[in-house]
Measured scan of single mutants.
Amino acid sequence: EDTPTSDDLEQFAKQFKQRRIKLGFTQADVGLALGTLYGNVFSQTTICRFEALQLSFKNMCKLKPLLNKWLEEADSS
């Protein structure tokens, strides 16, 4: 899998936040949902820092596919 560039991550974080708000989920909701879906719960702080691009590049890269999958799930339900 290609490592995203920081531009990709920035773009995704922006879109993710917009979609999340549009779908009516809080950052805490997302963190809990990730726990339900993938077995690891993320704190509201982590989601907040992802959206604000304040996590390390490595952590951003790790979270992106999970959040992307969550968006697909949320969109289809």
Rank of each mutant, 00 (worst) to 15 (best):
S76V: 13
K17G: 02
K69R: 13
S56P: 14
G39T: 05
R19S: 07
Q15F: 07
R20Q: 00
L9Y: 03
T36Q: 11
E10L: 15
E1T: 12
L63P: 00
S6W: 15
T46P: 02
D29S: 06
Y38E: 07
A28S: 10
K22H: 07
I21G: 03
A52H: 06
F57I: 11
D75I: 10
D8V: 08
E73S: 10
S6E: 11
R19E: 09
F16C: 01
A13G: 02
A13N: 00
E1W: 07
S6V: 15
W70Q: 01
E10I: 10
E51I: 03
F57S: 11
L71A: 03
S43M: 03
P65Q: 15
K14C: 08
L63E: 01
Q11M: 14
K58G: 11
D29A: 06
L37Q: 12
T5V: 09
S77R: 14
E51P: 01
Q11T: 11
Q44W: 04
Y38G: 10
W70H: 00
L53N: 12
L66G: 03
M60N: 03
R19N: 07
D75M: 12
D29E: 11
F16K: 02
R20I: 01
D29M: 05
L9K: 02
E72M: 09
P4G: 12
T46Q: 10
Q15M: 14
E51R: 02
K14H: 01
D8R: 06
A33K: 06
Q18V: 08
K22Y: 05
Q18N: 05
F50K: 02
D29Q: 11
F57P: 10
T3K: 12
V30T: 03
R20P: 00
D75L: 08
G35E: 10
F16L: 03
D75W: 10
E10N: 06
A28Y: 09
D75C: 08
L23N: 06
P65A: 08
C48A: 15
K62R: 13
E73C: 14
I47G: 00
F42S: 06
P4N: 09
F25I: 09
G24Q: 03
G39D: 10
F50W: 01
L71G: 04
Q54M: 05
K14V: 08
C61R: 12
A33N: 03
C61E: 08
N59S: 13
S77L: 12
L53D: 04
K69N: 05
Q18D: 10
Y38C: 10
S43I: 01
L9Q: 03
S43H: 13
L23V: 02
Q44F: 04
Q27C: 14
A74G: 05
L9D: 03
F42E: 10
S56R: 04
K58W: 06
C61A: 09
C61W: 08
F25P: 01
F57D: 09
S56A: 05
K14G: 06
E1I: 10
T5C: 14
A52K: 10
N68V: 15
L63C: 04
T45M: 08
E73G: 11
L9C: 06
K58H: 03
L53R: 12
T36G: 10
Q44A: 14
F12A: 05
K22E: 14
V41C: 14
I47D: 01
D75Q: 14
T45W: 07
R20F: 00
G39F: 02
L23R: 06
S43R: 06
T5W: 05
R49D: 13
T5S: 12
K17M: 07
V30C: 07
G39K: 06
K62C: 06
F42H: 08
E72H: 13
I47Y: 05
C48Q: 15
F50T: 02
F57W: 07
Q18A: 11
I47N: 01
Q15P: 00
E10D: 06
M60F: 04
L67Q: 01
N40T: 10
K64S: 06
A28W: 05
G31K: 04
K58V: 09
L67R: 00
F12T: 04
I21F: 04
T36S: 14
T26P: 03
Y38Q: 08
S56D: 09
K69M: 15
P65H: 11
E10P: 07
S43Y: 03
F12P: 00
Q15C: 08
F16P: 01
Q54C: 06
Q11C: 08
L63G: 01
K14W: 07
E73W: 10
L53M: 13
E73R: 08
S77Y: 08
D2H: 13
A52M: 10
W70Y: 04
R49E: 14
T45H: 10
Q11N: 14
Y38R: 06
F16W: 02
K58F: 07
E73T: 15
P65G: 09
G31A: 14
Q54S: 08
F12Y: 12
S6K: 15
T45L: 08
K22A: 13
M60C: 04
E73N: 07
E10T: 09
T46N: 04
K14R: 10
I47A: 01
C61P: 01
Q44V: 09
D75A: 13
T3V: 05
Q27R: 07
A28G: 09
L55E: 05
C48S: 14
K58A: 11
N59I: 15
G39W: 01
R49Y: 03
Q44E: 15
D7C: 15
I47L: 06
T3N: 07
N40P: 12
A52W: 03
D75H: 10
K69G: 13
K22I: 06
K14T: 09
Q15G: 08
G35V: 04
N59W: 10
T45Y: 05
E73K: 15
E73D: 15
S56W: 01
V30K: 03
T45R: 12
R19F: 04
L67A: 03
T46M: 07
D7A: 08
G35M: 07
T26M: 02
N68W: 13
G35C: 09
S76T: 12
A33D: 05
Q27H: 13
T26G: 04
Q44Y: 07
E72K: 09
L66F: 11
S56Y: 02
R49A: 09
R19G: 05
D29G: 06
T45D: 15
E72C: 11
S6C: 15
A52D: 13
T36V: 08
F12E: 06
A52L: 09
D8H: 11
S56Q: 04
L34A: 02
T5I: 12
T46E: 11
D2S: 13
V30D: 01
F25M: 09
C61I: 10
V30A: 06
R49P: 00
